[in-house]
Design a protein around this nucleic acid. Structure first.
Lengths: 132, 132
DNA sequence: GCGGTAGTACGACCATGGTAGTCGAAATTC
DNA sequence: GAATTTCGACTACCATGGTCGTACTACCGC
């Protein structure tokens, strides 16, 4: 079973670096994140180790350096986390979430147009498919 | 600042009971939730106490009974939690989340049609408004 | 009056995310 | 070859959510 890919904030930030870079050492990640959060290097290293325990990342040694790599795809994590929220807050009703987002008015007009086109596309070609 | 209305699973479940009922005793909540989770009554009572500390619920005494009431609106909680997710996972881009949901194919065809109408409505009347 | 019951209060414990200090070993520098 | 820096390992701490057990209390039926 695909375990729960529910990540915390820092974990997400780390994964983003890994997804963008492909491979990165703890130091690289720290450097990338230092500007926005100013954490101690050890914090990043510890988090990476914990994440490795959970299978979120893997590493290989390059000399003394550990190069970490993401072991779960960004799409997977997104899917899990969105699914979790939909379950918790909207009792599994994805459409209700879309509804909420639309009504909140946080979507720019141009985006609305894009989304509308996306819906139309899905209505057209989506007859027998189910998107997975 | 409106504190963080980020609730856990049990907290959500409890809030749902309160939102639906208006007022409820710890026992009522326990009864309502017992079927789906089978928790000890004290668990509910403790959770309610903790939630009161955080201002999520309030209570008044009716004899020796405590009648709890939600002190934050469902919409508020939804907003906070969705906002949190959008921030964490989609870096604040709500449209990206809608996009994700649409592509995941978890939305039924009838829903797609409804959402499309909603988008059209927002495009039309949404010129100066901003949804709040 | 007395025991059972219902209901709250309090404290304990576990997991997880986040944060960091310290330690030891290896690499680099003098 | 010794001193310094570098970097991972380990340990510890704190907060929060979740889960209860136990203790206290007030009321009810007999």
């Amino acid at each position: 079973m695909p375990r729960k890919h529910i990540l915390g904030d820092l974990q997400l930030a780390i994964m983003r670096v890994l997804w963008a870079r492909g491979e990165a050492s703890a130091g690289d990640v720290h450097a990338a994140l230092h500007a926005e959060r100013g954490l101690a290097p050890t914090t990043i290293a510890t988090m990476l180790r914990k994440m490795e325990e959970k299978g979120l990342v893997g590493h290989r040694a390059d000399g003394r350096l550990f190069l970490y790599r993401a072991r779960v795809a960004e799409a997977k994590v997104r899917h899990s986390m969105v699914g979790e929220l939909v379950q918790r807050v909207f009792l599994g009703d994805s459409a209700a979430l879309v509804n909420h987002l639309l009504r909140e008015g946080e979507i720019a007009p141009e985006e609305l147009a894009r989304l509308k086109r996306l819906i139309e596309a899905r209505q057209k070609d989506g007859q027998g498919r189910d998107g997975r």
